[in-house]
Amino acid sequence: MTTLTRNATAAERTLGRPVRRRGQSDMKVALFFIAPAMIGFIVFYLVPTLRGIYLSFTEYSILGDPTWIGTANYEAIGKDPLFWNALAVTTQYVLINIVLQTALALGLALLMHRVAKSTLIRGTLLLPYLMANVIAALLWFWLLDYQIGIVNYFIDALGMPKVAFFGSEEWAIPTQALINTWRHMGYTALLIFAGLQAIPGHVYEVANLDGASPWQTFRKITMPLLRPVLALVLIVTIIGSFQVFDTVAVTTQGGPVNASRVLQFYIYQKAFTESDFGYGSALAVILFVILALVAFIQMKFLKGNESDLD
């Protein structure tokens, strides 16, 4: 709201006259411009979401009609050990992925900001992100293969025991979290880099004059001023991270045993493999609620909608 008012006053100042009150006639024009996004939103998001919520209260095998069963799906989920397992596995994935990814991306962004000014190097950091998720997963699936992968070949050559990166229960999730860290790190760094560029140079000059050490500058100036951008980046990446699916689907498919049966894959398994669309929808609604809560808490906690740059 504050931003809106400020923009309005700024507009008033530049135009040198009060902004014309919006008339009824603008409504049509506005609708015209909003329509493409609105239609897409309604057809691809709103309707499927509402239908998904409806289906979560039914038993539905896609062929045939849904039957209303009330909250039976949710009650079954509460008692389903695989759901709780999926939640734990997904959380483990998100923690590894987000902590590493954000830390590395912040480091890269600082390097891009301060050291690597060449567009070529900055562009190279983004390369893994240009690769499709499935391709990245398959690439690493082969590189890290136990029998014929080159990584295990070198590990073996160094005299260390080979690692079943995808096959062992301990490694399956960390491996996939690292693959996606590798893929998304450059992109996240780019977002943070944009945030760094928005910090005015004079703040740093003043800090420099006052004799602040680089660490102090980072802690007292860069981090607080970067907070809104960092909050946004965290919200977007955490939501994305919770929705990990493609990597699991093309590599371990939930296994070994249940070690990589993340929530999204479990939803897919229930709905599309076992034709239990009601149960799958209920799981999806729960994921939706979890993500909404996580985003809300982050916004509140990190004050992502306010800036200290005033």
């Binding site: 699936f141 082969w142 293969d145 136990y146 029998q147 014929i148 080979k162 079943a164 995808f166 096959g167």
Partner: peptide, 19 residues
């Protein structure tokens, strides 16, 4: 082979590799 080592390359391909 241990089950964990069979995720990935197919059994037939490792057979072809003489393993």
């Amino acid at each position: 082979p241990k089950l964990e080592t069979t995720v990935g390359a197919s059994m037939a391909d490792t057979f072809a590799a003489g393993k």
